[in-house]
Amino acid sequence: MSAALEVEHLTKSFGGLKVVDDVCFTVEEGDFIGLLGPNGAGKSTTIYMMLGLISPSSGKIRMLDRDLGSHRQEILARINFSAPYVAFPARLTTYENLMVFARLYGVHRPAKKIMALMELFDVHHLRDTLVGRLSSGENARVGLCKALLNDPELLLLDEPTAYLDPHVSAMVTATLAALRDHGTTIIYTSHNMREVETLCNRIIFLSRGRVIADGQPLQVTQTVLRDNRSDPALGEVFMRLAGGSTN
């Protein structure tokens, strides 16, 4: 296995405030990483730096054996991103929006790919619906279709199930599990600890911009809670670790 992502001493300050503070971790190919932490812990800022949307104050990011600073476009063509707080132009239909992104990513046979993804996320009936008329859950699912258009080697997901009802959330979780089994490297943030336990083979817990726990869910549970239970309990871990830092 080689590293899909190497984050070395990553730091970001806005004004005098350190939002990400000397973060280091390596992600192997095929890993499913849960990037956890309370609000303001630096999770989204770390993801934005991985996308080259925010430049780090110091430190380095290497993805897919390339330095992000000097190969940003090449890397972005091989990865993808989704978050429920981004949207698509409201006056374009679901299909038109996905077609624009399929062209941006240079997808081969885009129409076929789009229809397959729309069926996967159960939004095929919304093909000709204007995106402005979609519910937030439907919009999030279209975002996930967009995120899989280019068969990404590395997928960055910021709270992908945040606006979804339990039924759709379960469907998305199953799809992410299938992607994991298929070997896609995934880094995602979530506040749903049950979901994290189901999906992730490793968690990285951030607090006040620093990594304060890193390991397999069960291993982190046993270390943080100081007991030898046999099942992960990330909800309790979250409460323990975030207790002093939630805002």
């Binding site: 996308l51 949307l53 476009q73 090449e74 972005l76 063509a77 993808n80 991103f81 978050a83 707080y85 981004v86 949207a87 698509f88 132009p89 409201a90 992104f101 941006l104 990513y105 975002g143 967009k146």
Partner: peptide
């Protein structure tokens, strides 16, 4: 329009230069 529609991140998280 990309800002108003919250599409800016989608565009610039893609390989679009």
């Amino acid at each position: 329009e990309e800002l108003w529609s919250r599409n800016f991140l989608n565009l610039f998280a893609s390989p679009l230069d």
